[in-house]
């Protein structure tokens, strides 16, 4: 509700953001789409020719595509599951009366501020290394065979690292949400004879649903394009065991210089992300409505 004058002004002030985002999204996306129909390799410039859907055919029938597609789903799903379950547990714990809550909170939050390359390298070398890593020392100390994380369970290892990075975020958002829960509701439930379990199911969880939605949305945005953690730990290997779509397309375009194939992969990734986005937008649109 406002006047014509302010509406016009508002349009002008929106203009830069909209134009920039449009340019950032549409122009390169169209170029990607165009490249995806070309036989275009950076090593042989000047020999581009139109080849129709051949790039898509190659990309979609490549076993690497299926592997990386499922890896992407496992990675996103696994991290979401771990961070949300762990986050709810941590949030409930930190909501109790404890000594030194501020220090605990600072420690829990810390991994969120660690850059992906650092956390990946620290975990890879100092914790998960099969010879000198701390986990290996610990395994030998209790008398079991050390696990070679990145050779035996590469994807799981990456899921662990990424979950460590995102657990603080989920925990803190959920904690803030729990703290805003109306205490009178819990007292009313006490009077109605509800036990801790039913209080959790019928009062705490519905209250948290908004915050959980937000966590899913934001984490998914970032998790779909996990890159650095893979680059510095496994480089997608062994084989394609820890390659996600982002990494697969990166190797095709910038390591094999296959612009056409990489572009086709990019478009496929965009379509997949769109499907996820539509689903998420429905979710968030419903849940974040005031």
């Amino acid at each position: 509700m406002a006047t014509m004058q302010s509406r016009n002004l508002a349009r002008m002030m929106l203009f830069p953001s909209v134009v920039l985002l449009l340019a950032w999204m549409i122009v390169p996306l169209c170029m990607t789409l165009y490249f995806s129909f070309l036989d275009y390799n950076l090593l042989t410039p000047g020999s581009e020719e139109f080849i129709g859907f051949l790039n898509y055919e190659f990309f979609l029938t490549d076993p690497a595509f299926f592997a990386s597609f499922f890896n992407t789903l496992l990675l996103v799903g696994g991290v979401l599951l771990i961070t949300i379950c762990g986050g709810i547990g941590l949030a409930i714990l930190l909501d109790q009366a404890i000594w030194g809550r501020n220090y605990v909170r600072i420690m829990v939050l810390a991994p969120f501020f660690v850059m992906p390359t650092v956390s990946a390298l620290v975990w890879k070398n100092m914790l998960m290394n099969p010879v000198n890593g701390l986990f290996a020392h610990f395994a030998i100390w209790i008398g079991v065979e050390p696990v070679d994380f990145f050779a035996q369970v590469p994807l799981l290892s990456i899921i662990i690292i990424v979950s460590w990075q995102w657990l603080p975020f989920a925990a803190l958002i959920l904690l803030t949400s729990i703290q805003s829960l109306d205490r009178e509701q819990l007292e009313a439930a006490d009077l109605d004879g509800a036990g801790p379990f039913s209080k959790f199911i019928y009062i705490v969880m519905p209250h948290l649903s908004r915050a959980i939605t937000a966590v899913i949305l934001i984490e998914t945005i970032f998790l779909l394009s996990i890159f650095a953690e893979i680059l510095v730990t496994t480089s997608g290997g062994p084989g394609y065991a820890s390659t996600n779509l982002t990494y697969l397309i990166y190797t095709q375009s910038l390591l094999q210089f296959d612009v056409g194939g990489g572009s086709a992969g990019g478009i496929v990734a965009v379509i997949i992300a769109n499907i996820v986005a539509i689903f998420l937008m429905r979710l968030i649109g419903k849940n974040l409505e005031d």
Partner: peptide, 10 residues
């Protein structure tokens, strides 16, 4: 939500 790889090459 646009994956960076979608616009990586351009």
């Amino acid at each position: 939500m646009l994956p960076p790889v979608g616009v990586l090459i351009p």
